[in-house]
Design a protein around this nucleic acid. Structure first.
Length: 684
RNA sequence: AGCGGGGUGGGCUAGCCUGGUUUAUGCCGCAGGGCUCAUAACCCUGAGACCGUUCGUUCAAAUCGAACCCCCGCUACCA
């Protein structure tokens, strides 16, 4: 083997948003995948920093904090702590798991943007924005409606015309009006700071095209979106909770979360480096060496941000830097598809899926780690199925765990716990040993290609080879008249047990350690190293410990029941209903109405336009029923309608009220009166 | 509607980029057998797929192209 220089890596996983507990899909998409990869690299002896952190800023945090009557910072910090602890429980081997509301990050971000500004990539734009003096705020594009300048469509939105599909800005619209109150907004001047992505278009294209390790799907998505033309994007926001924008004149603004959280990949290493007393120059050592490989593990929703926005920012920053002062551009972005739960998407509000705190209450950690990687959604969306979970756990237990146990107990019982001697090899032995000497390379090939799913399956296959060999040799026969010859078989198998322990290290570290300790290898896994797998790893005469099965089967139906229990107790907590005063209820004017007409709404597959009769008056309603009712099922029906709700325009239909329906997931039922009663009757 | 991903034996899936080396791979399940060292585990054999549909390119297509159908996600509509 050549004595290569150690490779340097910065491994990262997507920054979880602090306002939500991650679920299994989030975990395998970024955090766990990155962990396996980082552990593998360390095991191989490369130099690795693995970082991530909580994304603390943004509107939802501010809103939740306000609701709970605490400071955003306090809320974010609490949640960050919880997430951090959970990742520790999952044995995610971060070198630094930090958060975006820390000094190093804030300072780094501010200086970073000033540099980009100096390099000429920030455009300050005094824009004319539409301000609604009735609702008292600047209207985002979508909240302005008017006449499309291209096709004359009357209900074009400020970002796009639904009729001709052309992209618009609010000021293009003729006769603009506020989508909320229909008032005419006034034009006000406001300043924002924009990142000039168009200027980087060619460089970005080149970067993505020449990189042949990024997955095909990601490449496609990015090149398409570049081809369509990258827009300049505003990096400032009029929001308080966030990092203050450093630009002159931007005192009241903060940096848009999306444009600062990604910089955490850099600042988190910086923060980590500061703590390395022995070598505080570690930051430059990693981030400013063009040989360093940086990898980003993310879900597919994040591709554009990691392959266009983030590298774009780095390029802009690097412009005026000397060669050895440039931040290194991404080596690879490993993006997964979605993990589904029994063919449904994870949904907090509907209680569908398993969250990472719940999982740990249901089964031991390594069963989850194994199962998730085994099923990593690499090629397409993949369902978490309980039947497959059971299957996979059995595989882990029967194929790997039981093999190890067969070997160790035999040695324990028949050879006084000492690994027996080896004698002459026959052809079958040679074939078997060749599996051991070639396995690490096979697995490497997959992991180096970010195909974790295949890599772990290859390891299972390897253990199967062990079972086959054992069966072919049947040492339990041989031992009757030749104890030495039987021992020989177990010597070889012991090499495989060792190999399994090392191979499993990145995936299920606990188990790996356990196996090694049975073999009396008590050194740190990384000290032993990936390349210690060999046909002579375990010496004859090595004393082993009394084995205990490393896995056991689980009763999956019991686990499911337990999950239901957890879910129920949670929903009880959240079902404390807020009481309202009777006066508030009295404000609601709910009446019986007859459905007279039902029309489809163009370009809206969920909406119907209903014409209803409320006593003397006819009204128009927009109702999201198209997926649940056919028009003829509704016509003539008497329904309950909230009639004094603010009118609101939906897809060009002015909805004057809201129809009442009972909803339980996909089951939707329109409310109708029990007896015949005239339209217009009031509900009290 | 726009964008993205996918449709392979009963279930999950490999192969698809780089057409032939696959009588379409593997796991589970099913049927039969073997073994008894081990956690009723392990090993072997077998049955089971017109590779979503149609058309095209080619000596040759699951693999390339076109059209269509269906599923899923994101975005917009759910008052």
């Amino acid at each position: 083997m050549t004595n290569k220089k150690k490779q340097k890596w910065v491994v990262t996983s997507a920054w979880p948003y602090v306002n939500a507990t991650p679920h299994l899909g989030n975990l395998i998409g970024s955090v766990l995948s990155a962990d396996v990869f980082a552990r593998y690299l360390r095991l191989k002896g490369d130099e690795v920093v693995y970082v991530s952190g909580s994304d603390m800023h943004g509107t939802p945090v501010a809103v939740t904090a306000k609701k709970e009557g605490i400071k955003p910072q306090e809320l974010a910090m609490n949640n960050h702590q919880k997430i951090k602890e959970l990742f520790q429980a999952w044995q995610i081997s971060y070198d630094n798991y930090t958060q975006t509301h820390n000094e190093t990050h804030i300072d780094f971000v501010q200086k970073f943007y000033l540099d980009i500004q100096k390099n000429g990539y920030i455009n300050e734009k005094e824009i004319q924005s539409l301000y609604c003096s009735h609702d008292k705020f600047y209207l985002p594009d979508r909240f302005v409606e008017g006449i499309c300048p291209h096709c004359g469509f009357e209900d074009a939105r400020g970002d796009q015309c639904d009729q001709c599909q052309k992209l618009l800005t609010p000021l293009d619209l003729k006769e603009p009006r506020c989508a909320i109150c229909d008032e005419i907004p006034e034009i006000r001047k406001t300043k924002h700071w924009y990142m000039n992505f168009p200027k980087l278009q060619d460089e970005l294209t080149a970067l993505i095209e020449k990189n042949d390790i990024i997955p095909q799907n990601a490449k496609q998505v990015c090149l398409n979106s570049i081809k369509e033309g990258l827009p300049e994007r505003a990096i400032t926001r009029d929001l308080k909770w966030g990092i203050p924008a450093p630009f002159e004149g931007a005192e009241e603004k903060t940096i848009y979360v999306w444009f600062e959280a990604v910089l955490g990949y850099v600042s988190a290493v910086k923060e980590w480096a500061k703590k390395q007393k022995s070598n505080p120059e570690q930051f430059n050592y990693f981030w400013k060496d063009s040989e360093t490989k940086t990898v980003y593990f993310i879900g597919k929703d994040n591709i554009i941000f990691h392959l266009i926005v983030f590298p774009g920012l780095l390029m802009a920053y690097n412009k005026d830097k000397a060669e050895d002062d440039k931040l290194v551009l991404p080596y690879n972005v490993s993006s997964t598809e979605w993990l589904m739960y029994e063919n449904d998407k994870f949904s907090k509000s509907r209680g569908i899926g398993i969250w990472i705190d719940e999982a740990l209450e249901l089964a031991p950690l390594d069963y989850w780690r194994f199962n998730l990687v085994y099923n990593r959604p690499e090629r397409s969306d993949t369902s978490f199925l309980w039947s497959e979970f059971e299957n996979n756990i059995n595989t882990l237990n029967d194929v790997i765990g039981n093999f190890i146990h067969r070997i160790l107990t035999f040695i324990h019982k028949q050879y006084e716990s000492k690994v027996p001697e080896r004698i002459d090899l026959d052809e079958r032995d040679i074939e078997f040993l060749s599996k051991i000497t070639s396995i690490s390379e096979k697995v490497e090939l997959y992991i180096d290609n970010f195909e974790l799913r295949k890599s772990i399956r290859e390891i299972v296959e390897f253990a199967r080879e062990g079972n086959i060999y054992l069966n072919d040799k049947a040492p339990w026969h041989i031992i009757r008249n030749n104890k030495k010859a039987a021992g020989h078989v177990f010597n070889l198998c012991a090499q495989m047990v060792y190999a399994l322990a090392i191979l499993l290290g990145p995936f299920i570290p606990d188990t790996s350690r356990k196996i090694l300790s049975f073999l009396n290898f008590n050194e740190d896994l990384n000290k032993l190293g990936w390349h210690s797998i060999s046909k002579n790893a375990v010496n004859a005469g090595t004393k082993i410990k009394k084995p205990i099965p490393v896995f056991q089967k689980l009763d999956v139906s019991e686990i499911k029941d337990k999950l239901d229990e957890i879910k129920q107790s949670k929903s009880k907590d959240s079902k404390v209903i807020d009481m309202i005063e009777y006066n508030n209820f009295k404000k609601l004017d709910i009446r019986i109405a007859t459905v007279e007409e039902v029309e489809d709404v163009p370009k809206a597959d969920k909406l119907y336009k209903l014409t209803i009769n409320v006593g003397e008056e006819k009204r128009t309603l927009a109702a999201g029923l198209a997926e649940y009712y056919k028009p003829e099922e509704l016509i003539g029906k008497k329904i309950a309608v909230l009639v004094n709700l603010e009118p609101k325009k939906l897809r060009g239909v002015l909805s004057q009220g809201m129809l009442l329906a009972a909803v339980d997931g996909e089951n939707v039922s329109v409310l109708t009166p029990d007896k015949d009663i005239p339209s217009g009757a009031k509900i009290e």
